[in-house]
Amino acid sequence: MTYKITKKSALKILAAGKRFDSRGMFENRNIEVKFGVSNKAEGSVMVKMGNTQVACGIKMGVSTPYTDHENEGTMMTSMELLPLASPNFEYGQPSIESVESARIIDRGIRESGFIDFKKLCIKEGEKVWSIFVDIAVINDDGNLIDAGSLAALLALLTARKPVYDEKTEKISFGEFTDDALPLNKDKMPVTMTFFKVDDHMLVDPTREEEDVCDGRLTVEISKPGKEEIINAMQKGGEATFSVEEVENIVNEGTKIFKKLNSLIETEVEKFEKEGKKKSKK
């Protein structure tokens, strides 16, 4: 928990349009990506944003489809705020913070059409692939929704399907094919949360900064064609936003989208190059 007087100082500096660690208002912290944190997962990654650290693993299974989508695979997103990650996290029922974060991340991925769920159908009405996107927070220093979402995208992009025997209807876990997931990469949704304090907006707050913010607006943007599309939004906290503020957020969002989009591209390229090196051995 951030101390009362530190909050006052943070508020003073943020209200003056400046950051606690002298970053720009719309400047992200340094991002570090490490793939393959669990070789048991179909895809996995550790993402560091400053001192915030999250792991994401993709697991797959085969299940029966929902009756209203008989020819589509399924997806489930979860986010665990591990007590390992912060003295403020506890065991027990998932907190509303973790449930809401997972749902926001889930919606962006679903609504953008990033995953081609029809291609995850094995036998209509009977067998489909299910994708589990599991995010685990390892160290909390703010901005968990964006960190979790970035980890989810990177893990999905680098996941490989496990071997599946259609006759026995069994998955050989631990044996991977070269098949990536059916993704529409051009529809990839990037999540950006804008925090509001007084009349000022900022992104990627540290825990100290986030604790003094009044609220947030999460925007998930993709760019399937020439135009950016908003796939999901969520206002959180008790703050209110003016029409101009929302317009401004969406515009700034497209700029950050560009940066994060190219970061994701670079990291995935690196991953694929290394994968090729390994398979040549």
Binding site: S38, K40, A41, S44, A55, G57, I58, K59, G61, S78, E80, L82, P83, Y91, F132, D134, A136, I171, F173, G174
Partner: peptide, 18 residues
Amino acid sequence: VHYNMLSFSVGERIKPGV
């Protein structure tokens, strides 16, 4: 002591929780 396996640490996904 609290021991926990992350859901994606094994072959078949395990449900998060105790």
